[in-house]
Structure formats: structure tokens, C-alpha cells
Amino acid sequence: MKDAFGAPQSLLVLGGTSEIALATARRLIALRTRRVWLAGRPSPALDAAAVELRDRGADVRTVAFDALDPGAHEEVLGKVFAEGDIDVVLMAFGIAGDQARDEEEPLAAVRVAQTNYTGAVSAGLVCAGALQAQGHGSLVVLSSVAGERARRADFIYGSSKAGLDTFAQGLGDALQGTGVQVMVVRPGPVRTRALAGRPEQPLSTTPEAVAGAIVTGLRRRSETVWVPGSLRVVMSALRHAPRPLFRRLPL
């Protein structure tokens, strides 16, 4: 159960090696979290993540989960929930794709869409149902600022996040009054290992900062979280910028 400050005792991460998710798990373990499930594609990285969190005092288990295999979601996730309440589900899987290649290879683009959007729709619905049955819990969805407005540089990824974001907002509305919170997190570019070495982008952030914002959002029972927080204002302006102008912005 979450305490009065929204700190969960149990956590399920979908996308168990995600840097943002692991930064969040570390923070939550430092608060109240004792049981952690890392769901993801089996790999040495997944096992290593489990070991690292175990060293921090949590009881960590891994479970095989593939976003691209929605047919199995019900069964895989059902088993996790059958083992005990999950206070927070963190949906962190996702791929950025490679815009240039994905434009050349439609099947690669579809893979981005299927992972980030349809995979999330399926897993999100399964988790929402389980949370609703237990009468409490939060579903934290990692969307992206890229879903707010199409950009030339990453619209394939962006459109998948736009779909995910809209889905998560609607799900949150549908779950009003059920005791289940859906929190949409919209980070700007996050300086993860994958982005290391690339030039600094404006309004970028770190996995730790996103983790901190998630913990605060849980405490405040927020519906939407922007990281950094200033993105909320920036995007409310950019959202309405005329397209010819937006195209010319150095974003």
C-alpha cells in the first residue's frame, strides 16, 4: 500500500532495464518500496539491474515480458498481480527508432509504433484492470514531449508517443473514482547513456530528475508531469505556434 505521501511498497517496471525506470526504482527503494518486479526481455542487462536493486535492499524478481507480444500480456502480467498487490506500475519500455532509416524501411517504423503504442495499449489495459480490481495503485506512463507536436526530426517516434499519451489521458479519465491514478510523464530529451556524447539539447533533463518528478507526482497524485517543469509553459506556447514558424524553429 502507498503511505500518506504516495510512496509505494511494491513496484512493477515494464521495460526493466530502462534507465529512467531504474533511477525511479532506486528512489522508491530509498523510501518505502520493498518488492520490485522487473518485466522485460530476458537479457544479462535485466539480470544485472535486478542484482543492483537487490543490493539496495529490495526483494527483486524478473519476469519475461515483450511489448511486441500483446497476446501474452494478460497471462504474464496476471501472474505478477496474483503474487500480491502492485502499488505502482511504471510503463517505461519504448524505442526511439532511427528516423532516417525508419523512413526508408516502413517495417522498422511499424516496429516503433507497435512497441511504443500498441504494446503499451495492451499492457496498459491489462494493468489498469488489475489495479482497478485491487482498488488502488498508480499507472505511470512514460510519454514524451516529442508526442506534443510533430517534429521533422522524430515524427515516427513522436506519433507513437502522441498515441500513447492520448490513450493514457483517456484511460485516466475512465479510471476516475476507481482509486486508480494514471500519471502521464512527459520528459524532454533525457541524457541517458544512449544520448551520451551528443550535443546538449535545450530543455533536456536527466534520468534522476525524471525519477524525482515521478516521486513528487505520486505524492501529489498528479495527472500530468513535465520534466523539466518549465516544459509545461514552453509547450503551451509552442503548441499554438503556426506550422510554418514551428518548422523553422531549431528544435
Binding site: 503511505d3 500518506a4 505521501f5 482498488g135 488502488h136 473514482g177 482509486g179
Partner: peptide
Amino acid sequence: GRTAPTTA
């Protein structure tokens, strides 16, 4: 205290 709402 109006903290930690749950549904029943």
C-alpha cells in the same frame, strides 16, 4: 487526514 484514497 484525506491521504491515500482507495476504492471499496
